[in-house]
């Protein structure tokens, strides 16, 4: 069970949160071309590595927040981990 670092509640079990997917900017709805808007809707970088993403602390503080996670190792970049890269619990 992944521990997700909620900025308010601290490290929480991932089942306490809702995953919000890749963080990406919303284009201006009045000027976006269909291609830009649909890229926003559907296309994703989906890297095997560091990804900025959103989580919602559904069973805790009810805050949406954004963190960086490595999708290959499941480590969170912030807060940084002391010791080796796969070490600590938070």
């Amino acid at each position: 069970m992944l521990l997700v670092p909620c900025p308010n509640c601290g490290p929480r079990n991932s089942t306490d949160l809702r995953y919000g997917g890749e963080s990406h900017a919303r284009p201006d709805p009045n000027t976006a071309s269909p291609a830009e808007w649909r890229a926003y809707l559907y296309l994703r970088d989906n890297p095997a590595g560091w990804l900025r993403e959103n989580w919602y602390c559904a069973s805790g503080c009810r805050r949406w927040f954004s963190v960086e996670r490595n999708t290959a190792t499941n480590e969170f970049r912030d807060p940084p981990l002391p010791g080796d890269k796969r070490g600590g619990a938070a």
């Binding site: 900025p7 308010n8 509640c9 601290g10 807060p79 600590g88 619990a89 938070a90």
Partner: peptide
């Protein structure tokens, strides 16, 4: 010793702990 470091970290990172 490592558990003590993790314990400290978990607590210090939890705003309301």
């Amino acid at each position: 010793a490592r558990a003590a470091a993790v314990r400290h970290r978990l607590q210090s990172r939890t705003a309301r702990a």
